[in-house]
Amino acid sequence: MATGYADPRRREHILAATLDHIAAEGVAGVSHRKIAARAGVPLGSMTYHFTGIDDLLREAFTRFADHIVEVFDEYLGGAADTEQARQAVIDLVHTISDGPQRDLVLTQELYTLAARRPEYRELTRTWMARSRDLLERHFDPDTARQLDALIEGLTLHRALDTAPHDRALTTEAVRRITAA
């Protein structure tokens, strides 16, 4: 999509194009030229809005992490009691794993980057802390940490398995972790 010079949303177009590009080609394929072309903006816009590729990647992945935290909040925010929170966690696992492949790819790209680079590790730690804070509205901190890891693991397993497990397994896993 071509945008005019005075487009006040140019920065957002660039960030969205960056996430789209990463989902399609991976972090290794990111360049100013490729992102500018995907965003439909002049190449000079890249250095005007971002100090470099790392700045662009950090902001794009921060935007993505914010999106996932919003999904967590959408499910967990309405839970009035522990049983509703358990059901929200189950629904969350299945919604994310059955959701857009793009989100799965972006998550794994960020994890891979974080495994190699401390500044991205901090971004993922912040994301995990925010997710756990939402879980801690309903569960003690240790249970919230275990549930957060369970959500990540079951989501990945369901998304990548040729015969993903059903809700019964997710339900049993959540109940085991949350049994008091």
Results as ranks from 00 to 15, higher is better:
Y120D: 10
R10G: 10
A36T: 04
V30H: 05
G40W: 09
L56A: 08
M1V: 08
L76Q: 04
R158K: 11
H138E: 00
G44N: 09
I35L: 04
Y111D: 09
E74N: 05
T124L: 08
E109N: 04
Y75G: 01
A17N: 11
T162K: 15
L156A: 05
P42I: 10
T170V: 15
P141A: 01
Q146E: 08
R137H: 11
V69L: 09
S97I: 07
A88R: 04
A80T: 14
A23G: 13
D148V: 02
R9S: 14
M128W: 13
R33I: 06
Q146N: 11
G99K: 05
F139S: 01
L150M: 13
D148H: 02
G52A: 06
T112H: 12
R175D: 09
Y48D: 07
G4I: 07
A23K: 00
L113Q: 11
L56F: 06
D55C: 10
D54R: 08
Q108P: 00
D20V: 03
L19Y: 00
A144V: 03
E152C: 09
T18V: 07
I22W: 07
Q146R: 14
E119F: 00
L56N: 04
Y111S: 04
D103R: 05
P164A: 02
D166W: 12
A6I: 07
P141C: 01
L106H: 05
D98I: 01
I177R: 03
G40R: 12
S131H: 08
T124Q: 09
T170F: 09
L154V: 12
T162H: 14
T112A: 15
R63I: 00
E25V: 12
F64K: 11
R132T: 00
V30C: 06
L92T: 04
D98F: 03
H13L: 08
T3R: 15
D20R: 07
